[in-house]
Design a protein around this nucleic acid. Structure first.
Lengths: 260, 260
DNA sequence: GAGTGGTCTAGACCACAGT
DNA sequence: CTGTGGTCTAGACCACTCG
């Protein structure tokens, strides 16, 4: 009863904003503000449908949005409950480096050190699961921003298509772009490994840091649909310039767990 | 027409497995196997409903599963299309350390070095946004596996509830657990920062590594519903023992982008 | 205008929980 | 048993895209 009075007003059925979205936002707000607390039971779907005088399917659509956002969960035969924020399951997101830098108002630039066809040495042959001496494309580049070098990247793919190397590949030679343009098969899966290490002499010189300075090392493997490796890359990132940030749980500030 | 012949057989309307799930899995398989290629158009929802003789809403439920898995996308007025695997948007996942170690068949142990009530120094007061000399709880511990020290953790929360420290908190003193038991307010948001650094003398001794060896530094901030910091922690992880792995795109092996 | 996806309805039957 | 969420139907109207 009291539940009805609290929220009934806030729904506008004639609005261009979908009803299910209005309902979802309404519950989201109640959860953020603490009116609905973790483990608390929501009214049954039928009840909610009655309260707002809408169809139960619409209610379910609204609740499914909140379930996707991990804010509520439902148990068959029992009911729907407010979830506890998950604070220990952390996710560090790493988008395209250049995009990331642009978002921070910097002006990233890629300087190509090297584009050549090489013969795979033992190490590379192992990484790409190919025979030694097979032809590969070798891209090396430095990404800088504000005239400071930040990342040294070297990338290798098996060279099969004898296509010319295009201008835009040089501008932004991401491993998947190179592989799509010059490889045999289409990449569908990527594996990355994040490590720490100390800068060797070569990297220290290229990145303008001291030898033994701490660096992130990101290794990337690209696979095709047969699960064969088709590309391998290694990025050395200056440890003094990079950190990864991660948020989990419910963010009170940007209250947009639902797609705004 | 040919589309109809290819897939009609595979649906069992009387099965206990929901129809929408069967349909979703069917399209998933077609996409993985390459029968449906990126950017290719799926039949319209009405058409799919006709082919399988099911309701359009059921078709939409199936497609929404694939949309959530980022395997297809739809555009109003145009149609539904197979997505390109996103290979550059990487996500490093970091679950609870001890869980992670257990999953790898190791036997993680937490040794508590320290549990005491301290007065916040200038640095801690800044991190927790409190006055200097305010009472705080200080937890320090070493996580080891197979008799090797791996992580040194120190955690601080504002001390307000004068509750005794319980046995199970000592067993697994995660920052959020401590905060829930001993803090004023309920944590709803967590921020983590991942950095690289070099081991200082103290850490080198505790972790049995050389001074200046590369280490991961993970800083965690816990916030309550008013966005006030209520806990702060710092973990030093041996660089030679940790790496973060990340998969993106479509995995051919574990074909379970949909729930199992 | 015809085709498409987005939203919504008012029912229905089921399997599962707690009693 | 009743109450609950999970699935499904057969319609409907809308807004958008494209020819």
């Amino acid at each position: 009863m009291e539940f009805k009075n609290i929220i009934k007003e806030n729904i506008d059925k004639k609005s261009v904003i979908p009803i299910y979205y209005q309902i979802a936002k309404l519950f989201e707000k109640k959860i953020f503000s603490g009116v609905l607390k973790p483990e608390e039971k929501l009214p049954p779907e039928n009840k909610i449908a009655d309260i707002f005088d809408i169809s139960r399917m619409t209610v379910r659509k609204a609740l499914s949005e909140l379930i996707n956002a991990n804010m509520i969960y439902s148990e068959k035969g029992k009911g729907t409950f407010v979830a506890k924020p998950k604070l220990d399951n952390t996710v560090f997101e790493l988008k395209n480096f250049k995009e990331e830098l642009k978002n921070r108002g910097m002006n990233p630039q890629t300087k190509l050190l090297n584009v050549k066809i090489i013969r795979a040495d033992k190490d590379l042959a192992l990484k790409l699961d190919i025979d030694k001496d097979k032809k590969c494309l070798d891209f090396s580049s430095i990404i800088s921003a504000n005239n400071e070098p930040l990342i040294y990247e070297s990338k290798y793919i098996v060279y099969s298509k004898h296509k010319p190397i295009l201008e835009n590949e040089i501008q932004d030679p991401s491993l998947s772009n190179i592989a799509m343009a010059h490889g045999d098969s289409f990449p569908i899966m990527s594996k990355k490994l994040l490590n720490v290490s100390k800068a060797i002499k070569k990297h220290a010189e290229l990145l303008n840091i001291k030898i033994d300075a701490p660096v992130f090392v990101i290794e990337q493997f690209l696979y095709d649909s047969s699960n064969n490796p088709i590309g391998w890359g290694k990025s050395i990132c200056r440890g003094d310039k990079f950190k990864f940030t991660s948020y989990s749980g419910w963010s009170k500030n940007n209250q947009n767990l639902l797609g705004e």
